[in-house]
Simulated scan of single mutants.
Amino acid sequence: MKSWPWLRIGLLAGLLVAIGVAVTFRDRIDPVALEAWIAGFGITAPLVFVAVYALASVLFLPGMIMTLAGGALFGPVWGTLINLIGATLGATAAFLVARYLGADWVSRRLGGRLKELVNGVEAEGWRFVAFVRLVPLFPYNLLNYALGLTRIRLLAYALATFVFMAPGAFAYTYVGHAGRQAIAGGEAAIQTGLIALALLAAVAFLPRLVKRLRVPAEWLTVQELARELAGHSPPVVVDVRSVEEFTGELGHVDGALNLPLDQLANRLHELPKDRPLALVCHTDRRSRTAAKLLHAHGFRDIHIVRRGMTAWRAAERSRHDQD
């Protein structure tokens, strides 16, 4: 019998025990004592803090305590950077642990609607990571492990985590800094506290803003579009390029309806609302704009063809070369 499965089982068991112990005793964590302990390391305190933050992320300990402590210890600017490094390293570690221990097992057993959901997350890639970091739909610690079970690229995951957690990290780091200023007293404490409240208000409004900016459509690869067009209920392909592009070098998908983006609002009556729509353009920029317009007018089953006709023609050339 191979040793690898047993190694993974052993690592999983050890991880679950460590998480169980950490969660059991997390209510006993004293933020003041934690700050004093880390501050005692002197010049190496930032490195110790980053390591502790990363470990806390892996063990499902509350990141809020760490973020507030980072602000109190290192100030709003350096504290934000140090908090982001610790949170990103912890998120990446949990991501890699989940990928090593369970990604293969999960991919073999996924099916039905759940498989479609995971495929959609993977197609979105860093965009999905960016969205859930700005709009925390799931707990931070659980999300790190869940995304490790997908095929999202590691570099894209880590970069999106670092960049798109920054607004929230800065706000809560500043709250930690404001708490330290309040303890010290003085007029500066009042000003710092008001800034902290303003930042928290901005972060609370951010999810609503992001949801409004998010494209209300699903993504389709050109391979998926080809399969759906060959099926029993094919989508209506809506090409939103100009007439010249539609008949130009890249051509168009057979049977596509040409509704240029600048004419789309006046020609909505030509589109059925009871069939899925697949939007295509040169890449996918105009398709995203078209998707927002269609959604605002009551269309719901909308799909955007990723990389548009550029990818469609590239896939055709690839199939031709193989033949």
Rank of each mutant, 00 (worst) to 15 (best):
P139Q: 11
V106M: 12
V97I: 15
V135K: 08
F170L: 13
L143E: 13
A94P: 02
Y145D: 13
F170M: 10
E124T: 00
L137E: 09
L137F: 12
P136L: 10
G112N: 06
E122G: 03
A166Y: 01
G148V: 07
A169I: 00
A98H: 07
Y100V: 15
N144D: 12
A93R: 05
S107T: 11
V118A: 06
A98C: 06
R113G: 10
E122M: 03
P139N: 11
A169D: 02
I152V: 13
N144R: 10
A158Y: 03
L155S: 10
L147W: 01
Y157Q: 09
A146T: 11
W105T: 15
A160E: 06
A103T: 07
V118W: 00
A103S: 14
F162S: 09
A171P: 03
I152D: 05
L149D: 09
W105D: 12
A171T: 00
A156P: 01
V132N: 10
N119R: 12
L96I: 13
I152F: 00
Y100M: 14
F128K: 07
A91Y: 02
A123E: 12
A94N: 04
A166T: 07
L96C: 12
A166V: 02
G111S: 14
R109S: 08
G90F: 01
I152W: 02
N119K: 09
N119Q: 15
